[in-house]
Simulated assay, not measured.
Amino acid sequence: MPTRRALDATDLARVAVFAALIAVLGLPGGFVVLSGVPVTLQTLGVMLAGAILGPWLGALSVSVLLALAAVGLPVLSGGRGGFGVFLGPTAGYLLGWIVGAVVIGLIVHAGGRRPVVWRTAVAMVVGGIGVIYLFGIPVQSLVMRLPLGETALSSLGFVPGDLAKAVVATLVVTTLVRAYPRGFRREWREPVAAERAPEAAAV
Score class of each variant (00 low, 15 high):
84 G>N: 07
193 A>E: 11
184 F>G: 09
59 A>R: 08
176 L>Y: 05
45 G>H: 04
165 K>H: 02
24 V>N: 01
198 P>D: 07
186 R>H: 13
163 L>V: 07
63 S>G: 12
193 A>W: 13
67 A>P: 09
43 T>M: 05
160 P>H: 04
42 Q>H: 04
82 G>K: 00
33 V>E: 10
126 V>Y: 07
64 V>M: 06
119 R>K: 10
98 I>A: 03
154 S>C: 03
175 T>P: 01
106 L>P: 06
123 A>R: 09
201 A>R: 11
54 G>Q: 08
88 G>H: 05
21 L>F: 02
158 F>I: 02
27 L>N: 00
25 L>A: 01
38 P>Y: 11
65 L>Q: 10
193 A>V: 13
19 A>C: 06
173 V>H: 00
197 A>M: 15
119 R>H: 13
82 G>D: 04
12 L>N: 08
118 W>N: 12
27 L>T: 05
156 L>F: 13
111 G>R: 01
107 I>K: 08
37 V>F: 14
15 V>Y: 02
3 T>D: 13
156 L>M: 12
3 T>Q: 15
46 V>E: 00
86 F>K: 00
163 L>P: 05
188 W>C: 10
202 A>K: 11
53 L>D: 10
197 A>W: 15
72 G>V: 13
107 I>G: 13
111 G>S: 04
73 L>R: 13
80 R>N: 12
142 L>N: 14
4 R>Q: 14
152 A>C: 13
164 A>C: 04
150 E>A: 15
85 V>F: 08
47 M>H: 03
62 V>E: 07
8 D>L: 10
49 A>R: 01
42 Q>D: 04
164 A>G: 00
87 L>R: 03
77 S>N: 14
103 V>C: 12
109 H>W: 03
115 P>T: 00
123 A>M: 10
147 P>F: 15
190 E>G: 08
169 A>C: 01
95 L>E: 03
164 A>W: 01
52 I>W: 08
32 V>D: 04
78 G>S: 07
102 V>F: 12
156 L>S: 07
75 V>W: 06
75 V>Y: 09
43 T>I: 12
14 R>Y: 10
103 V>S: 09
92 G>W: 02
89 P>S: 11
67 A>V: 14
61 S>L: 04
180 Y>T: 10
64 V>P: 00
15 V>F: 02
55 P>T: 11
109 H>N: 10
187 E>Y: 06
6 A>I: 13
28 P>Q: 03
199 E>V: 14
131 V>S: 04
147 P>C: 14
150 E>Y: 15
198 P>Q: 09
140 Q>D: 15
193 A>F: 14
76 L>F: 07
7 L>N: 04
43 T>Y: 03
20 A>N: 02
154 S>M: 13
32 V>A: 05
90 T>E: 03
181 P>Q: 09
140 Q>N: 15
44 L>K: 00
19 A>G: 07
163 L>A: 03
52 I>K: 03
140 Q>C: 13
196 R>N: 06
84 G>P: 03
158 F>W: 12
159 V>M: 06
71 V>C: 07
128 G>D: 02
27 L>K: 05
7 L>C: 12
196 R>A: 14
133 Y>A: 00
119 R>Q: 13
13 A>L: 13
120 T>K: 11
156 L>T: 06
75 V>M: 07
136 G>M: 12
140 Q>P: 05
